[in-house]
């Protein structure tokens, strides 16, 4: 089962440059219909037709989830990346038709929580924007701690502080402001859940601090989508389909499999959900695991790969696909 078995044809209805790094895109249904409601924290996969290449990149939805009239995402320009965000920033304009997947949520709120403590870094704010809209409509109890580099790069800082002056706390890196995490976490009432979305270092910091303070694992939530990394080109043989695919420098193994017309399952395309796990029948070389799904023992065995983010260097790679 592939993510977005169900897809939605959309038209870009707004493109708003927020600052030097982040641009917001709004989509309306091309057929004029209404969008499916979703849960705060859900993402959609955007299909980008860039020449003869199709990219499928996941972005958190940030519009009102309960009764959405449109879908919105905010995309950070990543000039070091493989080009998906650059394509959106530079090539996509109002009026363009695109295809989105139905929403999928791998970072949903635990609705049992007495209080939701949200910790965001940079573009990691986007899933929280939909969650905050959801909680505002359902009188949920939340607190946001949002760390940004500078005032000018603080996407949505003004909106959030205007609408929720008592619940939103902003920290500016260039003013040496830092979240006092230990103090923050140790002062929470029982029944609080903590959510973190941001750079890998921030996620690890929040997780390890919460764990060391005795927070139960089930009360700590994080979303870490990895963008697939570029790397040396390599080849893979798909045994069941009886084809060999060449994976380009800026292409993921999953994208190469799809380009060959082979249907492969996926959900997050970011190494997190486990859906694309594929058995390695044979390999002579190094599997470059970049996911955070496989356990260390499974990596040591070398019989599984997550083709959405992981790569290969060596002579032969044969997959059960």
């Amino acid at each position: 089962m592939s993510a977005g078995a169900e897809k939605i044809a959309v038209t870009v209805s707004e493109k708003v440059v927020l600052n030097d790094l982040v641009t917001r895109f709004q989509f309306k249904r091309t057929d004029g219909g209404s969008f499916p409601a979703f849960s705060g924290g859900a993402h959609t996969v955007i299909e980008m037709k860039d020449g003869d290449m199709t990219r499928l990149n996941p972005y958190s939805l940030m519009s009102n989830p309960l009764t959405p009239e449109f879908y919105e995402v905010s995309i950070r320009r990543d000039s070091e990346g493989r080009g998906g965000s650059m394509f959106m920033h530079d090539q996509v304009n109002v009026g363009d038709e695109m295809v989105l997947s139905y929403p999928v949520n791998l970072f949903s709120l635990d609705l049992r929580a007495r209080k939701q403590l949200l910790i965001a870094g940079g573009i990691g704010i986007t899933p929280f924007i939909a969650q905050i809209k959801q909680m505002s409509l359902m009188s949920g109890n939340f607190e946001l701690h949002y760390s940004v580099r500078t005032k000018s790069l603080g996407s949505y800082v003004d909106d959030l502080t205007d609408q929720h002056p008592n619940n939103v706390h902003i920290y500016y890196d260039d003013q040496d402001q830092q979240i006092e995490l230990e103090h923050l976490l140790s002062g929470q009432p029982l029944g609080t859940h903590v959510y973190v979305c941001g750079p890998k270092g921030m996620i690890n910091w929040v997780r390890s601090t919460a764990e060391s303070l005795g927070w139960p694992e089930s009360s700590i939530h994080f979303e870490e989508f990895l963008a697939p990394q570029s790397g040396k080109p390599f080849s893979a043989t798909l045994a069941k389909s009886n084809v060999t695919v060449d994976v380009g420098e800026h292409e993921s193994l999953l994208e190469a499999i799809e380009r060959a017309g082979v249907d492969a399952p996926y959900l997050c395309r970011g190494g997190a959900c486990g859906q694309c796990e594929t058995r390695v029948i044979e390999h002579d070389g190094d599997i470059k695991h970049h996911d955070h799904w496989l356990e260390d023992e499974e990596r040591a065995c070398g019989d599984k790969i997550m083709p959405c983010v992981s790569r290969f260097e060596g002579k032969t790679l044969v997959l059960d696909r």
Partner: peptide, 11 residues
Amino acid sequence: LKFLMNIQLGA
């Protein structure tokens, strides 16, 4: 369980 947790909206 793995199958059920991956059931998607609209499917």
